[in-house]
């Protein structure tokens, strides 16, 4: 499976990774080789096999509908790069 730099550009956009041209070409090589590895899956006969998303046979444990979190805004925002008046700020989005 060969992945062209243009395809890498599209994937990088989906993943919001800003890659320059040299990275695009490096990653196109890396990705192609990794996908060759993954392509070995084609050897498996998976007809009528159910996919396994999580190991073990359990189902979800649920929580009761109880409010247990208190306001921690100041503490939680100490790690934020740009806050003002309790808001997180990002460059203006035009809607």
């Amino acid at each position: 499976m060969s992945i062209k730099p243009d395809e890498v550009r599209n994937i990088a956009h989906l993943a919001r990774l800003g890659l320059d041209e040299s990275q695009l070409s490096e990653f196109s090589d890396d990705l192609s080789r990794t996908l060759d590895l993954v392509d070995q899956l084609n050897q498996a006969n998976t007809d009528s096999v159910e996919p396994l998303a999580n190991p073990g046979q359990c189902s979800a444990r649920l929580r009761d509908d109880v409010v247990a979190e208190t306001d921690q805004r100041e503490k939680l925002q100490t790690v934020a790069p740009n806050v003002d008046n309790g808001f997180y700020l990002v460059p203006r989005v035009i809607e």
Partner: peptide, 29 residues
Amino acid sequence: KRRILIGTYVLSAGYYDAYYLKAQKTRRL
């Protein structure tokens, strides 16, 4: 970044069945 790109690729439209789903079925095997 490499892994984010691979992961994004195998989940993207048109490749999900061939890669991600196939891998999950193989995982069952």
